[in-house]
């Protein structure tokens, strides 16, 4: 097990598996969020379901997610250090040929997403008042509306969703290749399903802050 973790391919596989878990989570999370457009009762009932009725299951998911994020970030950090060490003297000139902007922003985009997750948890789950002074426990709908009435947070969330889009564009494509289960392709760099997943998730998420900002959700 340790031997597996100690190779670059092993770490990539860990990153891929945890990434898949996180992709599954963001899809579910996004679908859940969209209930905000069905009214305050429905949304708050959904929040209650997660936080009270099936709280044991929620914790199981939370622990899984926490472990996934830690392993995902740790493997990314170690692989990044490995690639820095692999080229101590950089080129004066190197022109990217086919790599996508998405693939080249995985690392710093990932760091931003990590910060975003902390902020997001602080605002809506942990109720850090320095992030959201009006936070009220149990009033999930109200908290969301209060946050996104501030243009700064709308912007912050939209930027984060942009990075999530990029991360998913490369990540959901790369993961099947990292795990060695993708099919051979005439154009291996072409990606269709990953684009659909990435767009669905990010557009779905973005609708919430946009809905509040545009007054659809109030």
């Amino acid at each position: 097990m340790l031997k597996f973790w100690n190779t670059s391919v092993g770490k990539k596989v860990v990153m891929g598996v945890t990434g898949l878990i996180l992709v599954g989570f963001v899809i579910g999370h996004m679908v859940g969020n969209l209930q905000i457009f069905m009214g305050v009762e429905r949304y708050n009932a959904y929040a209650r379901l997660l936080q009270e009725d099936i709280i044991e299951l929620t914790w199981a998911v939370r622990v899984t997610l926490l472990v996934s994020v830690i392993l995902h970030a740790l493997s990314a950090w170690q692989l990044t250090r490995r690639s820095w060490a692999a080229r101590p003297v950089d080129y004066a000139l190197r022109e990217a040929q086919v790599s996508t902007y998405a693939s080249r922003t995985m690392r710093w985009g990932g760091v931003f997403l990590f910060v975003f997750i902390l902020v997001h948890l602080g605002q809506f789950t942990l109720g850090w008042t320095w992030l959201l002074p009006e936070y009220a426990k149990g009033a999930a709908y109200g908290n969301v509306v209060l946050a996104f009435e501030r243009p700064f947070w709308v912007l912050f969330y939209l930027v984060a969703m942009f990075f999530l889009l990029l991360h998913l564009l490369h990540g959901t494509w790369a993961v099947l290749r990292t795990l060695g289960v993708a099919k051979n392709a005439a154009e291996p760099l072409a990606r269709r399903i990953p684009v659909i997943i990435a767009l669905l998730v990010t557009v779905g998420f973005s609708l919430v802050p946009l809905g509040v900002a545009l007054g659809v959700v109030r």
Partner: peptide, 26 residues
């Protein structure tokens, strides 16, 4: 370094070797 599936290797390869083989290796 490790593989991030950038695809730059395949573009540089004078023999056009596909990154599909990296998938196979994994």
């Amino acid at each position: 370094g490790g593989c991030s599936l950038f695809g730059e290797c395949m573009a540089a390869c004078p023999k056009g070797i596909s990154i599909d083989f990296i998938k196979r290796m994994n």
